[in-house]
Amino acid sequence: MLQPAYPLKTARLILRPFKKTDLNALHSFQSRPDVTRYLYWEPRTRAETAALLEDKIARSTLTEPGEYLAIAVELIDTGELIGDLTLWWTSREHASGEIGVVFHPQHHGKGYAAEAATELFRLGFDELGLHRIHGRCDSRNVASASLMEGLGMRREAHLRENELVKGEWTDELVYAMLSSEWKRR
Results as ranks from 00 to 15, higher is better:
152 G>K: 09
58 A>R: 15
159 L>S: 04
155 R>N: 11
122 R>K: 15
112 Y>S: 06
27 H>M: 01
175 Y>V: 03
14 I>V: 15
56 K>F: 14
112 Y>Q: 11
77 D>G: 09
90 T>N: 07
116 A>T: 09
82 I>S: 00
113 A>Y: 01
26 L>Y: 01
20 K>Q: 14
68 Y>E: 13
1 M>Y: 12
30 Q>D: 12
6 Y>L: 10
43 P>V: 12
29 F>P: 11
111 G>F: 07
145 A>R: 09
79 G>S: 09
171 D>S: 10
4 P>S: 05
80 E>N: 11
170 T>S: 12
26 L>C: 04
116 A>L: 05
183 K>T: 10
157 A>E: 10
134 H>F: 00
23 L>C: 10
64 E>W: 05
120 L>W: 00
173 L>G: 00
100 G>Q: 09
18 F>L: 10
9 K>P: 04
115 E>A: 06
108 H>R: 13
183 K>M: 05
68 Y>M: 15
119 E>R: 14
131 H>P: 07
108 H>V: 11
143 A>C: 02
88 W>K: 11
100 G>S: 14
75 L>S: 01
57 I>H: 03
99 I>Q: 04
89 W>H: 08
65 P>I: 07
52 L>H: 13
83 G>W: 00
74 E>P: 09
21 T>L: 13
30 Q>R: 15
137 C>Y: 00
45 T>R: 08
182 W>D: 03
63 T>R: 05
56 K>V: 01
88 W>G: 05
4 P>F: 01
97 G>R: 02
104 H>C: 13
46 R>E: 08
87 L>Q: 03
64 E>Y: 07
159 L>C: 10
135 G>V: 01
54 E>Q: 14
1 M>G: 14
158 H>W: 14
90 T>Q: 10
145 A>W: 01
113 A>N: 07
16 R>H: 06
73 V>P: 08
160 R>I: 14
33 P>S: 09
46 R>D: 02
53 L>M: 10
84 D>M: 07
64 E>S: 07
27 H>V: 04
144 S>T: 14
5 A>P: 07
91 S>E: 10
61 T>H: 13
5 A>Y: 10
50 A>N: 11
157 A>W: 04
40 Y>I: 15
177 M>V: 02
161 E>R: 08
79 G>R: 08
39 L>W: 00
29 F>H: 09
100 G>W: 00
154 R>G: 06
151 L>K: 03
92 R>E: 11
41 W>T: 14
2 L>F: 11
135 G>H: 03
59 R>T: 03
108 H>D: 13
42 E>Y: 04
184 R>L: 11
107 H>M: 14
26 L>E: 05
112 Y>H: 12
180 S>V: 12
172 E>P: 08
6 Y>I: 07
156 E>T: 11
116 A>S: 05
77 D>A: 15
84 D>Q: 03
